[in-house]
Design a binder for these strands. Structure first.
Lengths: 117, 117
DNA sequence: GCATGAGATTGATCGCCATCGATCTATTGT
DNA sequence: ACAATAGATCGATGGCGATCAATCTCATGC
C-alpha cells in the first residue's frame, strides 16, 4: 500500500515530449480513498458480499444461527467474516442472551456508492 | 473462499426454537456474487481506487507515464496494479508505439454500483 | 546496428487472509 | 451444579498480494 497519497508529480515531463493530455488529478483525497478502499476490500469476498445482501434485505437484525447454514463454510469462518465487516464499519452486532444479531449500518456504503455513480 | 454458494440450508431449526425471523435468501446468485466481489476486490486498494478515479475523469485514454509520478510507488508496482484492474475487467489498455494508454471500460462498475444502491 | 526509453515481466520477500479444528466464554435449561 | 448450546477466539496452514530491484521486450532515434 502506498504511504503517501498526496499525488504530487515527482518530476516534470520535458517540454515537447508530451505523450498525452496532462493528467487530471483525482478528486478523491487520501482519507476518502483509504476509507472507500477499506469498504471495497471488505466487499471483495463472495461470502461477505452475500452476507451483506442477506442483511440488507432485512429491516431488522438477523441471528447468526440463521446465517451459518446458508454458506458452505464453518462457523468460525463465518464469525471471521462478520468480524471483518464489523471492523470495516459496514455491520453492527447486538447480543441477546445466547444469540448474536447482526444488521447493516445505515449509510455505511453510501460514500462508496456515491463515488461509483 | 466458499466453494458452494447455492445457499441451501443445511438443517432445519427445531420447531419452537426460533431465534429470529426466517432469513430471507440473498437476491444475488453465485455468478453475480463472484463477479461483484472480484470488482470490489480490485477496488480494495487505495492506489487502484485512485487510479480508477483519475481514469474516470478523462473522456479518453491516459498514458502510463502520466500515472507513474502521481503515486509513491515504483513503476513495476503500478504496472502490477494496472494488470489487476485489467484482469478484473475494469480497465482496458492500448499500445501506441512506446506508450501504453489505459481507460475505464464503460459499465464495468455498473453491476456493483447498481447493487449498492 | 546500437543506444535509449516506456512499460511489462520475473524473482524474492514479507505480510495478510480464508479456512479449519480445537478451545474458550457466556447463557440457558434441567 | 451440570450439561448443552451459540458464538467468539486461538493456532496453524496454505495461498495470495503488494512491493521492489533487476531484467526483458519492443519501438524509436541516431
Amino acid at each position: 500500500m502506498a504511504i503517501n497519497l498526496m499525488l504530487t508529480p515527482k518530476h516534470k515531463r520535458a517540454p515537447g515530449e508530451r505523450c498525452c493530455e496532462p493528467v487530471v488529478y483525482p478528486d478523491v483525497e487520501r482519507g476518502e480513498a483509504l476509507r472507500m478502499a477499506a469498504v471495497a476490500k471488505a466487499l471483495g469476498d463472495p461470502v461477505r458480499l452475500q452476507l451483506i445482501d442477506v442483511l440488507r434485505r432485512h429491516a431488522g437484525k438477523v441471528c447468526v444461527c440463521e446465517l451459518v447454514p446458508l454458506f458452505e463454510i464453518g462457523q468460525p469462518t463465518l464469525s471471521h467474516h462478520l468480524k471483518k465487516l464489523r471492523e470495516a464499519g459496514i455491520v453492527g452486532s447486538e447480543r441477546q442472551g445466547l444469540w448474536a444479531y447482526y444488521y447493516v449500518i445505515p449509510d455505511a456504503l453510501k460514500e462508496l456508492s456515491t463515488w461509483l455513480n
